[in-house]
């Protein structure tokens, strides 16, 4: 393949940083929001946006791991819901003190990870198609969540959501979480595991033939997905301050959309964790832009739907153009 010098240099930049188009869309949306309503770019408004969309950012990063290996997890929303009710009910049962909150969160993260491992065993171990298999495991998780807490409503101690919505050293708590997520991503993309994961997603058979433990790598991706979905659940608890056995179910498809908006191809083998987190923010900014642009309330959902569709299509086209 002969290619002009500049194109190939461009290409290598985009290859190293596949989230660049997403970053461009993000900046454009920030500017649009700022033009439509200057107050939407205030410190407080940005904090609010992150507070609301932090859970989706975690969920999108969670989804990315399985998408990298050319799988998909349609149960992430159900895992989120399950962890949400497990944590909320445990806090209540353990008395609601700081120790109980910490313990409940740890158990929640463990439950999420186990749910992910279960998905991995079902999809990879039993060799089922991930779309339908994780749809079924999602129903199982929803059943468990309904068993733990049949109806929404149990409140969490004030300290929990006060912390999530509050500030430490004058800086909003959610910013620390964002930094934590960024550090996690920074570390994750430097592991040997992520390279192996991409290799598996790019060509499963070739990866197997070159000696990679494909089964273990794929199951690990599902486990990581469950783990990060659990963190998304903790964010949701901080934001909504109560338990709800179906709170996350509608978020599943948004996590897929965020992954695609972030420049990751569903066919696996390439993509960016950071892009997925940006993708989640893009979805949030599209919603706020439609709101601030003064679209009448009944047309808002439609305008959001169209904007997301256009962004998805543009994302696919740009990513393909670059990687060609």
């Amino acid at each position: 393949m002969s290619m002009p010098q500049s194109t190939s240099r461009q290409r290598s930049v985009f290859e190293r940083f596949p989230f660049i188009p997403a970053l461009g869309i993000l900046v454009a949306l920030l500017i649009l929001n700022g033009i439509a309503e200057p107050r939407s770019m205030s410190y407080g408004a940005i904090t609010g946006l992150i507070k609301t969309y932090l859970a989706l950012m975690f969920l999108a990063v969670a989804q990315s791991f399985v998408v990298f290996s050319a799988d998909i997890d349609l149960s992430v929303g159900a895992i989120l819901s399950l962890v949400n009710v497990v944590v909320v009910v445990l806090i209540e049962r353990l008395g609601g003190g700081p120790d109980s909150v910490l313990l409940a969160c740890l158990v929640g993260v463990l439950v999420g990870t186990l749910a992910g491992v279960f998905n991995g065993l079902v999809v990879v171990g039993l060799r089922l198609q991930p779309i339908v298999a994780t749809f079924a495991t999602g129903i199982v998780f929803t059943g468990l969540a309904l068993w733990v807490l049949p109806v929404a409503g149990m409140p969490v101690p004030q300290a929990f959501w006060r912390t999530y919505g509050g500030r430490i050293f004058e800086i909003p708590f959610v910013f620390y979480v964002v930094i934590l997520l960024a550090v996690f991503i920074w570390l994750a993309v430097r592991t040997k595991y992520i390279i192996e994961l991409m290799a598996v997603g790019d060509n499963r058979l070739a990866a197997y033939q070159s000696g990679l433990p494909v089964t273990r790598i794929r199951i690990k991706a599902f486990a990581l997905c469950g783990l990060l979905s659990a963190f998304a659940a903790l964010c949701i608890i901080g934001d909504t301050a109560s338990g709800d056995p179906v709170v996350g179910n509608a978020m599943t498809l948004y996590s897929v959309a965020a992954v695609v908006l972030g420049g990751t191809a569903l066919s696996g083998g390439s993509g960016s964790l950071l892009g997925s987190a940006i993708g989640a923010l893009i979805l949030g900014l599209i919603n706020s832009f439609v709101f601030f642009a003064g679209v009448s309330s009944e047309w808002q959902n439609f305008a959001q739907g169209v904007a997301v569709l256009v962004a998805l299509m543009a994302g696919v086209l740009v990513t393909r153009r670059i990687s060609k």
Binding site: L253, A257, E298, W299, A303, Q304
Partner: peptide, 21 residues
Amino acid sequence: RIPPLIMTLGMLGVLQGLLVV
């Protein structure tokens, strides 16, 4: 050449918005 999953996922959002209208 948008992958069908992405195309129809986006269209689902459009349709749900239209439903509200």
